[in-house]
Design a protein around this nucleic acid. Structure first.
Lengths: 193, 193
DNA sequence: ACAGCCATGTAACTTGTTACATGATTTT
DNA sequence: AAAATCATGTAACAAGTTACATGGCTGT
């Protein structure tokens, strides 16, 4: 629902047309999350269907302009007042991948971790380079800069977590080897055992 | 694609039926990302449609068993060898929210940040409590424990980023107030100016 | 003339998600 | 006997995503 809410929030600045909204969105997130312009139009249609925006005809220059409705404004207010729920965070592909990797024999977890760390560190360097450009521009963009910081913080946490996983897995292997009798655990429901 | 890949990878352990796969998945991620069993069946149908699994009839106990195909095995190998792409990371709702909040007048960014920090810290406490239970169980589950660590690392990074945002926004406001002449920037495409 | 951006849209998909129906078996 | 769990599926939908069609306008 990120795109949907974002576009709706951008319409609080005043009526806008599709192409403009994409520019508004990308002015804030930069090249980080490019937004296909087609998605702007599909999203606007859905917002209109749900009564959160109204399509006003031409704006005199041939642009199909959308205006936020009172319900839409309420929705935006609710979005900003309600924190992003951490009760059921979006599934993290990397966490799932490693969680499965450590339990399936024949997968070399060490390699998976190393590859991922390289990729993440490389991304980190890209972010840093990008940040230098963004912050050094004529008119530094606070929003975009913060988004980049978010990516940097996230990637750094990921690297730390990968190191942590490596250490724990090593410790785990050391603890398991002496006794050597740990067959793959059955996760079969009780009923079938 | 997390669920899809995860279920496929779990089938590398050997043929499984739907209910079993959900148990396998949740044994690794615990209560973190509950998986609706209906989704297991829809995902299995789609995997079969794409030739990555084969439905074998009964297993003798009345269970509809699925077996991974060679293409499926190749897909899993590719999934594990290819790092999770950070070139276009999934859109981060919180980052987008704040990026927009700082650019739309009438939004109290400070409050948004404070609310979010409370929520994240509270989630962090939940994770810590859960982790104590998981690690203290009869048969501590490495996979689930690592997933929880991942959530902890992520939430900690989020709190740090929120603090960082607060500081930067304060600095930004101080820098802008003395001159006071910064009208809302137009993001209208060049053609329209 | 041609390339490229501005601008609007639609069709066709993907994954994820839930609500529901159905029935067998197990536990209390 | 009732409640819970095991087990399989389907229908319907949401959000995101891309490829394509269409046309005007601008700069080289």
């Amino acid at each position: 629902m990120s795109v949907r809410h974002a576009l709706l929030a951008l319409l609080e600045q005043g009526p806008r047309y599709g192409y403009q909204l994409r520019a508004d969105f990308e002015a804030r997130t930069g090249t980080t999350w490019p937004l296909n312009v087609g998605q702007v139009y599909t999203t606007l249609s859905r917002l209109e269907r749900d009564g959160l925006v109204d399509a006003e005809g031409d704006d005199g220059e041939g642009h199909q302009v959308y205006r936020i409705t009172p319900s839409g404004r309420a929705e935006v207010a609710a979005w900003f007042s309600r924190p992003v729920a951490r009760t059921q965070p979006p599934r993290d592909e990397l966490a799932i991948k490693l969680a499965i990797a450590v339990t399936i024999p024949g997968i070399d977890v060490g390699t998976v971790i190393q590859q991922q760390r390289s990729a993440t560190i490389s991304a980190l360097q890209d972010y840093t380079r990008l940040k230098r450009d963004v912050d050094g521009a004529d008119r530094p963009d606070l929003a975009w800069s913060l988004v980049l910081d978010s990516l940097v913080f996230g990637a750094e946490a990921e690297v730390r977590w990968l190191d942590h996983c490596e250490a724990r897995i090593r410790r785990h292997a050391r603890a398991a080897r002496p006794d050597e009798t740990s067959p793959a655990e059955s996760t079969t429901p009780k009923a079938l055992r």
